[in-house]
């Protein structure tokens, strides 16, 4: 039974992908269709025996998905890798620090989620670690990413790394993003093979998915929260998932 259920959910995600409003075209893609196909194959492939806990916003994967091994930088010296995911729940968000609207909104919601869990008096809830991955290592230094996220919550973890490493982790979870280049407010078109024209290498914004990914204490992708996000809902869904994990 879980299989058709999940495919329906996946289809509803895909419903958002209509190419309706796209005033500027986009030139650098991190294989989106490819990801969807891979996700469909991986997720549709196997079923689970236990019924999933009831959640409001979280889509629980019928079978937790292994994340490919990774090593990213946390601050100037520390690293953050797949071993850091073991033994605790993790919430992941992919963004970049030059993002003025979506990332601050998401980080604020995630900080609010943690604070609500901290303030919970009736039943203690295990606090997840929150990891913000900058998909823009070209302009985000690891220490800047950490400083940026610490503003929202002192326990937030900000990481980035080699573009290929970041891309690999994002692909493994199903996060999507692309660089869109602009010159004087107009879309800049060039052959991605040749790269951006000289002097305009940093004239881009990054379009990205606003999904929050939940990784379980085995280090596997367990559920996804698609936007918009509410801290109360994330907190409650997380609690339900944690309880069923037992």
């Amino acid at each position: 039974m879980p299989r058709p259920f999940f495919i329906a959910v996946l289809a509803s995600f895909k419903g958002n992908n209509k190419m309706t409003t796209q005033p500027y075209s986009v030139f650098y893609k991190v294989g989106r269709g490819w990801l969807m196909l891979a996700a469909a194959l991986l997720l549709g492939g196997c079923g689970s025996s236990n019924p999933p806990p009831k959640t409001e916003a979280a889509t629980i994967l019928p079978q937790a998905k292994a994340i490919s091994a990774f090593t990213l930088s946390r601050g100037p010296e520390k690293t953050f890798d797949d071993e850091n995911l073991k033994g605790r729940w993790s919430l992941f968000f992919f963004g970049y620090t030059r993002c003025p609207d979506v990332c601050p909104t998401e980080l604020f919601t995630l900080a609010e989620t943690l604070r609500k869990i901290e303030e919970k008096s009736d039943t203690a809830q295990e606090k997840p670690q929150v990891v913000f991955v900058s998909v823009d290592p070209q302009q985000d230094q690891p220490e800047a990413v950490q400083k940026y996220v610490s503003f929202y919550h002192p326990e937030f973890i900000g990481v980035t790394g080699e573009q290929v490493a970041v891309d690999k982790l994002a692909r493994s979870m199903g996060a999507i993003y692309e660089r869109a280049y602009f010159l004087n407010g107009k879309a800049l078109i060039f052959d991605p093979e040749e790269g951006a024209p000289e002097g305009l290498e940093n004239s881009y914004l990054i379009n990205h998915s606003a999904t929050i990914f939940l990784v379980n204490p085995e280090g596997k992708l367990h559920a996804v929260f698609s936007s918009p996000h509410m801290s109360d809902t994330i907190m409650k869904d997380l609690a339900a998932i944690q309880q069923s994990w037992g």
């Binding site: 992908n17 989106r32 609207d101 979506v102 692309e178 379009n207």
Partner: peptide, 19 residues
């Protein structure tokens, strides 16, 4: 200073500069 609008398209949040 720029005027922008965030839109959801293609499964992604996009910032689009506005005149």
């Amino acid at each position: 200073v720029e005027l922008h609008r965030t839109i959801m398209a293609d499964g992604m949040m996009k910032m689009v500069q506005q005149k």
